[in-house]
Design a binder for these strands. Structure first.
Lengths: 205, 205
DNA sequence: ACCTGAACACCGTTCAAGT
DNA sequence: ACCTGAACACCGTTCAAGT
């Protein structure tokens, strides 16, 4: 049994039953082998999960565009990170286990920073814009993933979650929030992109 | 045994041993009572953890300033959310279990949105700026908390973590990222505030 | 009315034993 | 060289039994 088929099987178990229900015993059952056989390839269950997370973070980086529009290329980068994470909603929160400076982020980070540079931004500003984009994307996407994950765990794989930032406070107590609530978009992707554009608002050129 | 002392004890166990080591049996041992006694007050271990998380999210909202500088007040709001979460680094990632529209966020959200309104921003823009600030803060703070938590689990309570976005890629492979890496601040709070200011950059007035 | 603790159905991981 | 499976030290939660 190769490391690759083991990871593929683990991802399948995670996606169908949820990361919470993933266990070495469950994986052993899925692969018809002893639960302890996996320790040949991964020192620990967490090491296996880290490898799965890294593969998701790296997913699709080879296809990132380098057009003549740096802003569009950056948008594509983070939009695709969001989509890769949402493809595995119960696994997504585990990205926090991987520091954002780890190898799995390098290509993606280099692409984003290169576009900021190309748009004429100096390194200090580029660093700030980059970190803001990254952490905003993680915060938004992980919040969305948790809601999706709840739906998956209840209704099984392929369920749809609701809007990520829906707020229904009592209007008497929280008037300002109530005014704004209707503008928190139903469409999570549109809301997400609006935040990216806000951060990229005055990108040079 | 009241619900309050139970939560206080649970928080103490979480902070000293890490949320990963928290269990009903550990809490029972700490309180010198049967591990199943807690089920009188909380239906489930997760319900107990959710209550802890809500108390952290609500922490300090009563003290949020309303000065004559809306931008400073908003900064104070999210800076304080960051600090409350970092005070319990191993618990912090569990905020993702609470949708950001839940009651624990209401006062805090209302305060932030009120300041945006006060600064002359229309509701649609305020909604976008608010959600961007919130998810950026969550992403940045949870990433930082994870590193702190790793240090706590290794060295015990009170340990210090390193910079949240430290990146050391091989310069030949990732030249742009390497240019920018030195500008990713050592000081996590300064880096965090720089991102807030970026998002709030052209707040009216 | 409240607490107890045995019991059930699980965990991750180790390691001696097999092939 | 690789897999197996018994065993260890844990889990969350339920429920009959105690007080």
């Amino acid at each position: 049994m190769s490391r690759e088929v083991l990871m593929a099987a683990a991802m399948e178990v995670v996606d169908t039953n949820g990361a919470g229900a993933f266990s070495m015993r469950a994986l052993g059952g899925f692969l018809d082998c002893d639960p302890t056989a996996m320790y040949r390839h991964f020192a620990t269950k967490n090491a296996l999960l880290d490898a799965l997370v890294d593969s998701v973070v790296r997913d699709g980086v080879a296809d990132l565009p380098e057009s003549d529009d740096p802003r569009a290329d950056i948008r594509a980068n983070f939009r695709q990170l969001r989509r890769s994470l949402l493809a595995h909603p119960t696994l997504a929160p585990l990205v926090l286990r991987r520091p954002p400076g780890v190898g799995a982020y390098w290509e993606r980070s280099d692409h984003a920073v290169a576009q900021l540079h190309r748009a004429g931004m100096d390194p200090a500003d580029a660093a700030n814009v980059y970190q803001t984009l990254l952490f905003y994307t993680l915060g938004h996407t992980l919040s969305e993933a948790r809601q999706l994950a709840r739906a998956v765990e209840k209704e099984g794989a392929g369920a749809r979650g609701g809007p990520v930032a829906q707020v229904r406070p009592p209007a008497e107590l929280h008037p300002d929030l109530s005014d704004v609530a209707p503008h928190l978009r139903e469409d999570n992707e549109a809301q997400f992109l609006a935040g990216l554009d806000l951060i990229l608002r005055d990108l040079p050129r």
